[in-house]
Each structure stands twice: as structure tokens, then as C-alpha cells.
Simulated assay, not measured.
Amino acid sequence: MDARKALLIDAYRCFNGRDVEGLLSMMTDDVEWPDLPGGRVLRGKDEIREYWQGQFAVSDPQAVPTDFEPGATDDEIVAVVEHEVRGLGGEVLADQYELRHRYWFRDGLVRRMVVQ
């Protein structure tokens, strides 16, 4: 779990720093990622890149992992995350705590994420 935890800590740093390409380098080419506002699953790095670029153009989301839990299988880990979304002017748009992001891995890279 240590290598996956370290990868996710780096991924959250990249997310909060808006390093989209750094984030995508931590994922498999066929990665699946949730688009919660759109109610769909994004597939592949190109869809995720477009999603994040759009998200970052209109808001300033921050996600900070506070804990990691083992998943139900060996290729799975759950990140407990404090999540806040601000507008580009700094106003709080959404403030949520104790979100759980469940990740699955393949060959040391993220292959899927869901929000619980």
C-alpha cells in the first residue's frame, strides 16, 4: 500500500497545483474517472484532460488526503479526502469533508477512481 499511497499523495499535490500532465502521467492509458456533475464516466486521458481544464477554468477545487484505507482487493486503496471548491474570486462554492475516493491500480498506475 505504501507505493500506492505515495503515488496518490503526489497526485493530490499535482491536482491542487493544477499540473494536469503530471496527474495524467500517474494513470493508465485506459483510466476511468468520474464526471460527477455530468453523471458519466470519463475514459482515457484525453477526456480527463479536457474535464480538468474545464473545471479549473471556472473554479478552484482543492482536495487534501487525510487518511488512506485498504480496499476490498489487493489492487485497491481508499483515500479519505477533505474537499473544498472555491470560485476564481475566492468565494466558497462547495465545502465537503470526509469524501472517500476509491482507487484501483494496474502496473503501479491508477486505472480507475470512484467517489463514494
Score class of each variant (00 low, 15 high):
83 H>E: 09
102 R>F: 06
40 R>L: 07
114 V>C: 11
42 L>C: 03
66 T>M: 05
3 A>W: 00
19 D>T: 04
17 G>E: 08
86 R>E: 03
45 K>E: 01
62 Q>T: 12
36 L>T: 06
50 E>V: 05
2 D>L: 11
30 D>A: 15
100 R>H: 14
83 H>W: 12
113 M>P: 00
100 R>V: 04
14 C>Y: 05
96 Q>L: 14
105 F>H: 01
8 L>H: 03
11 A>Q: 13
44 G>H: 11
15 F>A: 05
2 D>F: 07
12 Y>Q: 08
31 V>N: 09
79 A>N: 01
26 M>Q: 11
54 G>V: 12
91 E>Q: 11
17 G>T: 04
77 I>L: 15
31 V>S: 12
84 E>S: 10
107 D>Y: 08
1 M>N: 14
40 R>A: 07
102 R>W: 10
67 D>Y: 11
4 R>M: 03
17 G>P: 01
47 E>D: 14
62 Q>G: 12
76 E>Q: 06
16 N>I: 08
88 L>G: 11
90 G>R: 06
53 Q>E: 14
77 I>C: 07
24 L>A: 03
65 P>E: 03
14 C>Q: 08
104 W>M: 05
4 R>G: 06
113 M>T: 01
91 E>V: 00
79 A>D: 02
6 A>S: 13
35 D>K: 02
60 D>T: 15
18 R>D: 01
53 Q>K: 12
56 F>R: 02
84 E>L: 08
30 D>M: 10
38 G>C: 02
56 F>A: 05
32 E>A: 13
110 V>Y: 01
110 V>L: 00
76 E>M: 07
76 E>V: 01
56 F>M: 03
105 F>G: 09
88 L>P: 09
108 G>D: 13
18 R>K: 15
89 G>A: 07
103 Y>D: 00
81 V>S: 00
69 E>Q: 15
109 L>W: 02
9 I>M: 12
72 A>D: 13
116 Q>T: 01
52 W>G: 07
25 S>G: 12
6 A>H: 10
81 V>H: 01
23 L>E: 13
43 R>N: 10
94 A>C: 04
105 F>S: 08
63 A>W: 11
39 G>I: 15
92 V>G: 09
16 N>C: 04
109 L>A: 14
77 I>K: 02
27 M>K: 06
16 N>T: 14
42 L>Q: 05
1 M>G: 15
59 S>A: 13
10 D>T: 15
11 A>F: 14
18 R>Q: 09
74 D>L: 03
87 G>Q: 09
73 T>N: 12
39 G>P: 10
89 G>R: 04
113 M>S: 01
73 T>R: 15
76 E>H: 07
76 E>S: 03
7 L>M: 06
105 F>K: 03
23 L>A: 11
97 Y>T: 15
114 V>Y: 12
69 E>W: 15
88 L>S: 05
